[in-house]
């Protein structure tokens, strides 16, 4: 419980640091979200592949570091602005890299 709380604190703050690294133009914020979701999926793959059950890292840090709601909201904003191609490719790129990187981490650590 304390592990999840601490992991959640640190995971969210680390995600925020990625947003601070980019200017908050909309495509750059999406690039930061894409980056945290990709890195988080890779690291989770490594944890799962190695058989780790760390609540601090898995439920806490990585769960909070990655985000689904921010991705969904940014895609909706793109769609509302008529940027169907940008929103659609953002979603597809995130889904694909998340899956591939999770698989990579999983296979490497098995």
């Amino acid at each position: 419980m304390i592990g999840i709380a601490m992991g959640g604190f640190l995971g969210a703050v680390t995600r925020y640091l990625f947003y601070l690294l980019v200017e908050s133009r909309s495509w750059q914020a999406k690039a930061a979200t894409w980056l945290v979701n990709s890195i988080g999926s890779l690291v989770l793959g490594a944890f799962v592949g190695s058989g780790s059950l760390s609540a601090f890292w898995i439920t806490g840090f990585l769960g909070a570091f990655t985000t689904f709601s921010t991705m969904a909201l940014d895609a909706v904003k793109d769609f509302e602005d008529g940027n169907w191609l940008q929103g659609g490719s953002y979603i597809l790129a995130t889904l694909a890299s998340g899956l591939l990187l999770f698989g990579l981490g999983y296979v490497l650590m098995q």
Binding site: S41, V43, G63, A64, T66, T67, F68, T70, L99, Y106
Partner: peptide, 25 residues
């Protein structure tokens, strides 16, 4: 930052989604 970036950003998660997707595939 407290509500959207912190609370809701952390409440939802993408890493576990990638894991589930991988296992379903």
């Amino acid at each position: 930052l407290l509500v959207s970036t912190g609370l809701l950003g952390s409440f939802t998660t993408f890493s576990a989604f990638s894991a589930d997707w991988f296992h379903y595939l």
